[in-house]
């Protein structure tokens, strides 16, 4: 089993899709009774001015059941996860949770994951962490790594196989 099973490009993961879909449907029911389109979420949205994300419109589209359109749109990947929409909604709706579910659905349906997410996931699988120890440059232009600074060894899973097996189970599990 490889990373392909866990992310895009492979077979769509039907079990996972079913689960995320159930999540989206319950979110849809919730917002149908609560969201009154005041757009307070959008007024404070960190991604609004810069990238034209409008969380209240995401909510409105989900309310109308346009899940496929949303899953296939690039706009869902502009959310900065600042959680202001969730915090400030007078009706306790959480557009950010809708966005997470939509992105999870995009991945589970085999859509290509944007940017460095695949590389990070690959690194978690092989190392347990999103990246390995980096050599960094000081302000005086010398280079150092963590051991040269007297820091103790990096904490990470030592039995990589066991760790990977568990992570892989999540990708394919049928619980």
């Amino acid at each position: 089993m490889t990373i392909v099973d866990l992310t895009s490009m492979g077979e769509p993961q039907t079990e996972q899709q079913r689960e995320i879909n159930a999540r989206l449907v319950s979110l849809q029911n919730e917002i149908s009774s609560y969201c009154y389109q005041c757009a307070k979420c959008t007024s404070g949205c960190e991604a609004h001015k810069l990238l034209e994300l409008e969380p209240h419109k995401i909510v409105a589209l989900l309310k109308r059941g346009l899940i496929n359109e949303l899953v296939n749109s690039d706009i869902i990947w502009t959310c900065m996860t600042c959680m202001k929409c969730r915090e400030r909604c007078p009706q306790r709706v959480a557009p950010i949770e809708i966005l997470f579910a939509l992105k999870n659905m995009a991945v589970a349906s085999g859509k290509q994951i944007p940017g460095k997410y695949t590389a990070m996931l690959q690194s978690i699988l092989s190392l347990g962490l999103i990246q390995d120890i980096q050599q960094i440059t000081t302000r005086m232009n010398t280079t150092v790594k963590r051991d040269e600074l007297g820091l103790p060894p990096l904490s990470k899973p030592t039995d990589a196989q066991k760790f990977q097996a568990a992570v892989m189970k999540i990708a394919t599990e049928k619980v």
């Binding site: 866990l6 992310t7 996972q16 990947w77 996860t81 997470f100 579910a101 992105k103 999870n104 991945v107 589970a108 994951i113 997410y117 990070m120 996931l121 978690i124 347990g128 962490l129 999103i130 904490s155 990470k156 899973p157 030592t158 760790f163 568990a166 992570v167 999540i170 990708a171």
Partner: peptide
């Protein structure tokens, strides 16, 4: 403490169950 891994937060957009795990 040895054996720690990624906290899961960077994977929330990819797979929330993985993050939780």
């Amino acid at each position: 403490v040895p054996e720690f891994s990624c906290c899961g937060e960077p994977m929330k957009s990819v797979n929330q169950l993985l993050s939780l795990y």
